[in-house]
């Protein structure tokens, strides 16, 4: 009795291991894999469900992460159909590998804004007021898109900031300000809008000079991928994106 029981247990373990390792893709219908910058989470979730409604049987799988992580994944062979990046440079990395099936086109813009604690206790009203050494400012590190935008903005506005910390993500900048650890931070308008319950936004006059462009491109050729990119870059896409604070390049 013992031996069969043991081998059953062993094969059960083996089966568990094997099924655990296999990826579980949805069986029925077509799946469209959309890789999008983390900042696009809200508008792309809306657009994806609209797309599913108008294309019965199609399921849109959204993969949100930092643009450069996504680019690395796509270059490593991840099955992306559409890629929407938070900056043209990252899109270029994918394009340089010859992995784009369509030219990239800009579908949205984003600008930086100052975020401060609720009620703006220090009365911060401009980029200049952040240069005061008594104000502790948190920026994104120059290596990440929001940080390089902050550098461009400082140059354009001829202001030099001494950050107390250079975070690797927008979330961390907002977190440091909303928790009161820092007095102010620079993030995108859309991030400030998403966090409006915990921080206040102060617009920057020079913001347009460090405008961030969001390109989208088809990675694996296909009608669905092209249609989805068209939806995002079209009239409807613009409406949804602007509701979340994104700008329109044609403005």
């Amino acid at each position: 009795m013992r031996r069969p029981l043991r081998s059953t247990a062993v094969s059960a373990v083996v089966v568990l291991l094997l099924t655990g390792c296999g990826s579980s893709a949805p069986a029925a219908g077509k799946t469209l894999n959309v890789y999008a910058a983390a900042s696009l989470q809200a508008p792309f979730s809306d657009l994806a469900s609209e797309f599913e409604d108008s294309n019965p049987g199609v399921s849109v799988q959204l993969n949100f992460a930092g643009s450069s992580d996504l680019a690395t994944q796509i270059i490593a062979g991840a099955p992306a159909d559409v890629f929407a990046s938070a900056n043209p440079a990252t899109m270029e990395r994918v394009s340089d590998e010859g992995l784009l099936a369509s030219p990239a086109r800009v579908f949205a813009t984003n600008v930086l804004t100052i975020v401060v604690g609720e009620g703006n206790p220090l009365g911060i009203d401009s980029l200049d007021s952040l240069a005061d050494p008594a104000v502790s400012v948190v920026l994104c590190a120059p290596q990440v898109p929001c940080g390089s935008a902050a550098e461009t903005l400082q140059q354009a506005a001829a202001v030099s900031l001494n950050p107390v910390s250079e975070e690797s993500s927008v979330t961390d900048v907002v977190g440091k300000v909303s928790s009161g650890q820092a007095d102010a931070g620079l993030v995108y308008v859309t991030d400030a809008k998403a966090a409006e319950d915990s921080v206040d936004a102060v617009p920057i006059n020079e913001a347009k000079q460090a405008e961030n462009l969001y390109p989208i491109a088809v990675v694996r050729p296909g009608n669905l991928a092209t249609e989805f990119a068209d939806l995002v870059a079209g009239e409807r896409g613009r409406d949804v994106l602007s509701a979340y604070g994104f700008g329109d390049q044609k403005q």
Binding site: G66, S68, V138, A141, Q143, V144, P163, V164, S165, E166, E167, S168, D172, G175, K176, Q181
Partner: peptide
């Protein structure tokens, strides 16, 4: 990362530096 922040020579330890370098 959550508590101390990240600034070269002050709070950016080796694991944080690795995480940041990975970006570029």
């Amino acid at each position: 990362l959550t508590f101390a922040g990240s600034l070269q020579g002050v709070t950016r330890t080796l694991p944080l530096e690795i995480y940041l370098q990975r970006e570029t």
